[in-house]
Amino acid sequence: VAFSGEEEGLFGSSHFVNNPPIPLDKISAMVNMDMIGRLNEEKSLTVIGAGTSSIWKNLLNEKNVYDFKLSFNDSGSGGSDHQSFTNRNIPVLFFFTGTHTDYHKPSDDAEKINLSGQADVVNYVYSIAYAIQGAENKPDFVKVEEPAQRNVPRSRVTVGTVPEFGYNGNGYKVSGVTEGGPAAKGGMLAGDIIIKFGNKTVNNIYDFMYAMGEFSPGDKVDVVVLRDGKEVTLNLELTSK
């Protein structure tokens, strides 16, 4: 199924679960592929929703004959269409090769797709889907405890970071920085973990977004990151989105 309206608020997948063509209790799982075309040299593959069934991690490791460097995120939440199914207590798996500095930009051109890597991801996902449909029993659903979320004010600024969505630890881990953006100019590096933004402690991506909402373009802010286990303070000048 190809869902439309994902960027506008999961409109397509929400309509599907609210008007299902088959009873929802007949659906074994939802397997989602969203941004699988940029497999890197380390063959890093993030699987979100890995905690939504007790069988997922064993199955994912068993079928990994492609030597992917797998990163599991237990949560079934996130900004893609699997979220609509998690909300209906359906186990999900979301496969994702990671964000990149061309994300949502005209520079995200077709020649930058890792075609052989994408083929490996698709074949891997196929083997998992085939195993699910051939199993005697449906995967069980496990409700994953999610971090507390709060209303996030609309931010007028950008920092120019790319989040590491497979990260499960404390803080906001940066997988990359946008060239020429505030983070890059301020000395932030891929792999840094933001633990404080201004006077706000950052425990997760939601804290980070909330903290950004308090600033205006042109403001300067001290940002504390963990780098190689040590705290480093950076000063960033924020720009408008």
Score class of each variant (00 low, 15 high):
Val1Cys: 10
Ser4Arg: 13
Glu6Ile: 03
Ser13Cys: 06
His15Ser: 12
His15Asp: 14
Asn18Trp: 04
Asn18Met: 09
Asn19Met: 09
Leu24Gly: 06
Leu24Glu: 09
Asp25Lys: 13
Asp25Thr: 10
Ile27Cys: 02
Ile27Glu: 01
Ser28Trp: 12
Ala29Phe: 02
Met30Ala: 12
Val31His: 01
Val31Arg: 02
Asn32Val: 04
Asn32Pro: 01
Met35Glu: 05
Ile36Met: 02
Asn40Lys: 06
Asn40Thr: 02
Ser44Leu: 09
Thr46Gly: 03
Thr46Tyr: 00
Thr46Gln: 00
Val47Glu: 02
Ile48Asn: 07
Ser54Glu: 11
Ile55Phe: 10
Trp56Leu: 04
Lys57Met: 00
Leu59Arg: 13
Asn61Leu: 11
Glu62Ile: 04
Lys63Thr: 06
Asn64Trp: 01
Asp67Pro: 07
Asp67Tyr: 07
Phe68His: 07
Leu70Gly: 08
Phe72Thr: 00
Gly78Cys: 08
Gly79Asn: 13
Gly79Tyr: 11
Asp81Gly: 09
His82Gln: 12
Ser84Gly: 08
Val92Trp: 00
Leu93Ala: 03
Phe96Glu: 01
Gly98Ile: 01
Gly98Cys: 00
Thr99Met: 12
Thr99Arg: 11
Thr101Arg: 09
His104Leu: 05
Lys105Thr: 11
Lys105Gln: 10
Ser107Val: 08
Asp108Leu: 04
Gln118Glu: 15
Ala119Val: 14
Val121Gly: 07
Tyr126Ser: 11
Ile128Val: 14
Ala129Pro: 00
Tyr130Gly: 07
Tyr130Ser: 15
Ala131Gly: 03
Ile132Pro: 06
Gln133Val: 15
Asn137Asp: 15
Lys138Asp: 14
Pro139Tyr: 08
Asp140Pro: 10
Asp140Gly: 15
Phe141Trp: 10
Val144Gln: 09
Glu146Met: 14
Glu146His: 13
Ala148Gly: 14
Val152Met: 09
Pro153Asn: 09
Thr158Gly: 15
Gly160Phe: 05
Thr161Phe: 07
Thr161Glu: 07
Phe165Ser: 12
Gly166Met: 02
Tyr167Met: 03
Asn170Met: 13
Gly171His: 05
Tyr172Thr: 05
Tyr172Ser: 12
Val174Asp: 03
Val177Ile: 09
Thr178Lys: 12
Glu179Val: 13
Glu179Ser: 15
Gly180Arg: 05
Gly186Arg: 03
Gly186Phe: 01
Met188Gln: 03
Leu189Ser: 12
Ala190Phe: 02
Ile194Thr: 03
Lys196Ile: 00
Asn199Lys: 14
Asn199Gln: 13
Asn199Tyr: 09
Thr201Arg: 11
Asn203Phe: 05
Asn204Val: 03
Phe208Thr: 00
Phe208Val: 01
Met209Gln: 13
Ala211Pro: 07
Met212Ile: 09
Met212Phe: 03
Pro217Gly: 04
Val221Glu: 06
Val221Pro: 04
Val223Ala: 03
Arg227Met: 01
Glu231Ser: 12
Leu236Asn: 05
Glu237Trp: 06
Lys241Asn: 15
Lys241Arg: 14
Lys241Pro: 07
